[in-house]
Simulated assay, not measured.
Amino acid sequence: MRLIFVCQECSIRYLPPVGLRYGNGTAASVVWCAECQAEMAARGVEESPALAALAMIAAVRALKDALTRRTEAAAPLPDRRPSQPPRTSRGRIRPNSGRTRLH
C-alpha cells in the first residue's frame, strides 16, 4: 500500500509518485499536491520541513490505521454457539421416576 497525503493548500487527497520523485527528477512534496506545489514554487514559497514531517507522520498513521482495520475485518468471528441447549420455561412433562402408577 502507498501513502496518501492531504494537500495543505487546497485540502484534496493525492497520491505522490513512488520515491517522492516526478518523472523529470524533481522532488514531490508531501505538503502540497502537484498543482499547489507548482504555484508555491512560482510564488517563491518553500516547503516547511516541520510541516513536511507532520504530513509524513499523519500519512503513516493513516496507513497503519487502515491496515489495522483491514486485519480486524478479516479476523474470523468467534464461535457463538451456546454450550447448552436453551432452557424452556415449562417444567417436565413426564414424572421424574421411571415407575408409573398402574392400578
Rank of each mutant, 00 (worst) to 15 (best):
M1R: 02
M1Q: 07
R2N: 13
L3W: 01
I4H: 06
I4V: 14
I4L: 08
E9H: 07
C10D: 05
Y14G: 08
Y14M: 07
Y14D: 03
P16V: 04
P17C: 11
L20C: 09
L20I: 05
Y22S: 10
G23W: 00
T26G: 11
A27R: 15
V30E: 00
V31W: 00
W32K: 00
A34C: 12
E35C: 10
C36L: 03
Q37C: 12
E39Q: 15
R43L: 15
E47M: 05
P49I: 02
L51F: 05
L51S: 09
A52V: 04
A55K: 00
M56R: 09
A58D: 01
V60A: 12
V60D: 04
R61C: 03
R61M: 11
R61K: 14
A62P: 00
K64D: 09
D65Q: 12
D65L: 08
E72G: 09
E72N: 14
A73H: 12
A74F: 04
A74I: 09
P78S: 15
D79H: 14
D79L: 13
D79W: 10
D79V: 07
P85T: 01
R87F: 10
T88P: 04
G91W: 04
I93W: 03
P95M: 00
G98P: 00
T100V: 14
R101Y: 13
